[in-house]
């Protein structure tokens, strides 16, 4: 039961129940859609940029607790970050999700986002957690089309 309780920590369940920044962002200057063909999870990420800084970020869509919580925590953690900083955080989160880092270091370097570390014990769920991040990345790059976890 412990791996499960690591996965579904109270923080994750809370973000799932009441996701932050779960709305359409009026006047967003970047927007991208993400899609996980395996399970049908869908997400739209909206970003407002002010001279290279993420001033606002929000999301909408449907998905499991992991994908929703990950998206919600992502929006909460990236406000005020530069595009480069956001990129670096994604790489760092990705490393944690795929089991490439230690919990102590995760907690120190990622703060609240470290609550997602339990996902690394569930390889089938990694894509749920990365969907919003991939989508954000394609929004920041101004890519057209749909981001995919595949």
């Amino acid at each position: 039961m412990s791996e499960l309780s690591d996965l579904y920590q109270e923080v994750i369940l809370d973000h799932n129940r009441s996701p932050r920044n779960f709305k359409k962002l009026e006047g967003a200057d970047r927007k991208a859609e993400g899609y996980n063909p395996l399970c049908g999870d869908q997400i739209t990420v909206y970003v407002k940029l002010e001279s290279g800084v993420i001033s606002e970020v929000s999301f909408q869509g449907s998905g499991c607790a992991i994908s929703k919580a990950s998206a919600s925590m992502m929006t909460a953690s990236l406000k005020g970050k530069t595009v480069e900083e956001a990129d670096a955080i994604f790489d760092r989160v990705h490393k944690m999700l795929t089991g490439g880092s230690s919990p102590a270091v995760d907690a120190e370097e990622l703060g609240k986002l470290a609550a997602l570390s339990g996902v690394s014990n569930f390889p089938a769920r990694v894509k749920c957690a990365t969907l919003s991040w991939h989508t954000l990345r394609s929004a920041l790059k101004g890519e057209r089309g749909v981001a995919s976890t595949e």
Binding site: S62, G63, I66, A124
Partner: peptide
């Protein structure tokens, strides 16, 4: 109600 099928699948698998 309130639980995505994926989360059901993961917990059942355990």
């Amino acid at each position: 109600d309130g639980v995505h099928a994926h989360d059901i699948g993961t917990i059942l698998d355990r």
